[in-house]
Design a protein around this nucleic acid. Structure first.
Length: 423
RNA sequence: GUGGGCGUAGCUCAGCCGGUAGAGCUCUGGAUUGUGGCUCCAGUGGUCGCGGGUUCAAAUCCCGUCGCUCACCCCA
């Protein structure tokens, strides 16, 4: 029985990890400009946290969660998303008492038991951003702007921001009933999936991909015609803010979201090319009553989560050049004495902050030079019998082939000044 | 859960009207006795996913199975 990783999970290897580190560093930089602070959350929680926040009848809770009983008999679930934990932590640490507006972001793995396909994994990584404590549409616009700026910094432009409003707990239930009664007369014509959706989440019928159902859906009542005046105004405000800084977006009335806690503004960012059918790079929106649902104070929130694997797979090639670190120096060692000497020299050079690789095995000079070349080292330092005798090593610039003698006792300074002259 | 495609060297793949494996890249060595990249030469590397069947003979045909992958669904 060959050892093997679990279906739907991936190792992120050197060569790939540099992209992740870069994306994370850009996230830290952009998000902190907007005053968001990182929060590190546990990857498992009590199961009921997810059941109550995401919704008992959603696909995620019904069939996708990794749930188990721990040795103490507790029902535990590997988190399928991050917002529930943020809300739990917000309440548990009484963050509302510290600041009227709490701005957090997180990064880490999520777990859903699904059939893997392009852009979909069982362990996948999300970056999430949550602004908690304000109902203002300015927050909606600001957080979406943060996201757009983040994408810009990553060099992504073939994206589309799609927004919608789902209404609030006043107007959404009314619309839901209006929609249900409109659907009822078509049940016979609609697909079996839509017949189930009619009961459980009638808004999803609007989004059905079966062609005949799409035709029917076109004539069903639209949510935008049934928003209460507050929701209507707020949604208009969000659009005005986006317009005021020329952020392009489209209104997509089919964005419904599969998690129960969303209301009012919702949005997705769709990759127009590069991903298959899993083309939503990011999704989010308002969840104004979730904190209250967990017995916290009334705390309207806006947030989003973006999928790292999907994001990374569409990063533009030109942004990925030069992410791998080049060694500053590779020590080429000829003979046993040189190999011994390489140890303290390497130690010394690393001590002054240089990235140093060294020959460990020995072997022909040719093969050592090849290794240095393979690692794309900027310089090689050649240490052989003559060099040791004369206390003068040979430093070679691997990009242009130029080489110099450098004195053993001023080695670090000589290398550093050579590197500096290149920059 | 449902359906399609694919499993041959470390990687990308060819071979598949049956006659027991090949290329490119990688790696190692050499051409160039202490100087990399380009070129040329040589070498290392394979239970042809696994199990069974047909056959004198199976990577090749048949059945089963596992894995990967894409799509539906759902979502990030």
């Amino acid at each position: 029985m060959k050892i093997k990783s679990i279906k739907g999970v991936k190792d992120i290897l050197p060569g790939e990890i540099e992209k992740w580190q870069w994306v994370e560093s850009v996230a830290h930089m952009i998000f902190s400009r907007y005053g968001f602070k990182e929060i590190r959350l546990p990857i498992f929680e009590y199961t009921h946290l997810f059941k109550r926040s995401i919704g008992d009848t959603t696909d995620i809770v019904e069939k996708e969660m990794y749930t188990f009983t721990d040795k103490g008999g507790e029902e535990i679930t590997l988190r399928p998303e991050g917002t529930a934990s943020v809300v739990r932590s917000y309440i548990e640490h009484k963050m509302h008492g510290q600041n009227p507006l709490t701005k957090l972001y997180y990064f880490g793995p999520m777990f859903r038991y699904e059939r893997p396909q392009a852009g979909r994994f069982r362990q996948f990584y999300q970056i999430g951003v949550e602004a908690m404590g304000s109902p203002s549409p300015a927050i909606d616009a600001e957080v979406m702007t943060l996201l757009i700026e983040f994408f810009k910094e990553l060099g992504l432009n073939d994206l589309e921001l799609q927004i919608n409003s789902l209404g609030c707990k006043e107007c959404r239930p009314q619309y839901r009933e209006i929609l249900k009664s409109a659907i009822q007369s078509h049940l016979g014509e609609l697909c079996s999936n839509c017949n189930q959706r009619y009961e459980r989440n009638p808004l999803r019928v609007l989004d059905c991909k079966v062609p005949r159902d799409g035709e029917i859906a076109k004539d069903l009542p639209k949510i935008k015609d049934h928003l209460c005046s507050q929701c209507d105004q707020d949604f208009a405000q969000v659009q005005k803010f986006l317009d005021s800084i020329n952020t392009p977006y489209t209104i997509n009335e089919l964005i419904v979201r599969g998690l129960d806690y969303y209301n009012k503004t919702t949005f997705e960012v769709i990759a127009k090319t590069g991903l298959g059918s899993q083309n939503a790079v990011c999704g989010g929106g308002r969840y104004d009553s979730l904190v209250e649902d967990f017995d916290g104070p009334p705390t309207p929130c806006f947030g989003f989560a973006l999928g790292m694997e999907r994001l990374i797979s569409i990063l533009p090639e030109e942004k990925l050049q030069g992410l791998e670190q080049r060694p500053d120096v590779y020590l080429v060692c000829l003979g046993d004495e040189a190999l011994k000497l390489a140890f303290p020299i390497t130690h010394q050079l690393r001590g002054v902050g240089l990235y140093v690789e060294r020959e460990v095995e020995g072997g022909s000079m040719k093969s050592q030079m090849r290794k240095a070349n393979k690692l794309a080292s900027r310089f090689t330092l050649i240490i052989g019998e003559n060099e040791i005798k004369n206390k003068q090593y040979v430093l070679k610039n691997m990009d242009d082939g130029e080489q110099w003698e450098v004195a053993a006792d001023t080695l670090a300074e000589a290398i550093q000044s050579r590197i500096k002259s290149l920059e």
